[in-house]
């Protein structure tokens, strides 16, 4: 091999792309590291903002708050804006058992988790499928459905809770008498057909909370929609030629292709519903730490809860990942 060809082929070698130069003789053995090393260095340069940020800005606070859980915290004497930490071991672990409000909120968050995640996933999947179909005004419909992602603000949620005027107007607009009458009729039907009352109550409760559900499933709809867009149309065409019905298409093409995103969405929903901004427990712990100056107990409780969330997320991810179909594997 002459000099020029050598030069050319070594310039072509990209790690993991050996077949790319299979036509030429491989020169990886001679000058193997230069390009791989260059690429590795370039990679580190591209991710360096995050590394610097994590080491110098984000992890120290996380570490500090973890240490709070295992220390007595004293505010410094007057004139100084400081804290003193004295190691206290597992002294504050007992608040995990003694704080009844904490236990109650944590229990209710975990108890409603399953139903909440299931309904959000199914709901967002159905909506994403509908928004993916072709119809007039699709763009407007999509814009409206993503609006809650943009407009849900903690400040507004707080205001809603203490706004008598808003609730007055709300009641005028949706006359609650109608609702009661409707509920009465539904319950009458339930009795007439001897349906299980508990199940019906769960379902009517879900329907009543549909606005919360829409608000919490904006991101999930977005993720599902992006997945649906990426399924190659040729799959549907060939199955149509072979005489498959839309129903068969849905179960044999759409569902398997979208299953990796079901995993992503389930994990996101679990995290969002257990530790989102409108979670009762999160707000309680925040108030406890910041407003009531119970730093150690607050830190201990939030870390214990975070560990539980972490474990649940891991277990859910593990179970679902067994059921996921990957096209390339």
């Amino acid at each position: 091999m002459d000099e020029a060809a050598k030069k050319f082929s070594s310039a072509l070698v990209v790690p993991g792309e050996e077949k790319f130069v299979s036509g030429l003789k491989r020169t990886r053995e001679k000058k193997p590291r230069t390009i791989a090393q260059k690429r590795a260095i370039a990679g580190w340069i591209f991710i360096s903002p995050f590394l610097i940020g994590f080491i110098f800005l984000l992890f120290p606070p996380i570490y500090t708050s973890l240490m709070f859980a295992f220390s007595d915290v004293f505010t410094a004497s007057e004139g100084y804006a400081g804290f003193t930490l004295v190691p206290a071991g597992f002294k504050y672990a007992e608040t995990l058992i003694n704080d009844l409000t904490y236990l109650q909120f944590a229990g209710s968050s975990l108890a409603t988790l399953g139903l909440q995640v299931l309904t959000i996933i199914i709901f967002s999947f159905v909506i994403a499928n509908i928004l993916n179909q072709k119809f007039k005004g699709r763009t407007v419909a999509r814009a409206i459905f993503f609006l809650p992602v943009i407009t849900s603000s903690a400040a507004i949620v707080l205001l809603n809770a203490f706004d008598p005027l808003y609730s007055t107007a709300n009641n005028t607009a949706t006359s609650s008498a109608d609702e009661l009458q409707l509920m009465g009729q539904i319950l009458g039907l339930v009795e007439a057909f001897k349906l299980p009352t508990d199940a019906t109550k769960t379902i009517t409760g879900l329907v009543g909370n549909v606005s919360t559900m829409i608000k919490n499933s904006g991101v999930q709809i977005l993720i599902f929609l992006s997945g649906l867009q990426s399924i190659s149309p040729s799959l549907f065409e060939s199955s149509k030629i072979e005489g498959a019905t839309p129903w068969e298409n849905f179960w044999k093409i759409t569902f398997p292709m979208i299953s990796p995103l079901i995993l992503v969405n389930t994990v996101y929903t679990v995290i969002d519903s257990l530790s989102g901004l409108d979670n009762q427990l999160m707000n309680y712990l925040y108030t406890k730490k910041i407003s009531q100056y119970k730093y150690s107990a607050g830190a201990m409780e939030s870390w214990a809860y975070f560990l539980v969330v972490f474990a649940i997320t891991g277990i859910v991810a593990l179970i679902i990942s067994k059921l996921v179909y990957y096209e390339n594997e």
């Binding site: 990679g43 590394l51 925040y286 939030s302 969330v309 997320t313």
Partner: peptide, 30 residues
């Protein structure tokens, strides 16, 4: 880019996604 430790660093990114702000906000203030 492929480089050693990429998976590990990406785990850290995932970690920052999962941990709620309320857990470390006070430590960050200090």
């Amino acid at each position: 880019f492929k480089f050693k430790g990429r998976g590990l660093v990406f785990m850290l990114v995932m970690f920052t996604m999962i941990i709620p702000t309320q857990v470390y906000i006070l430590g960050m203030y200090l």
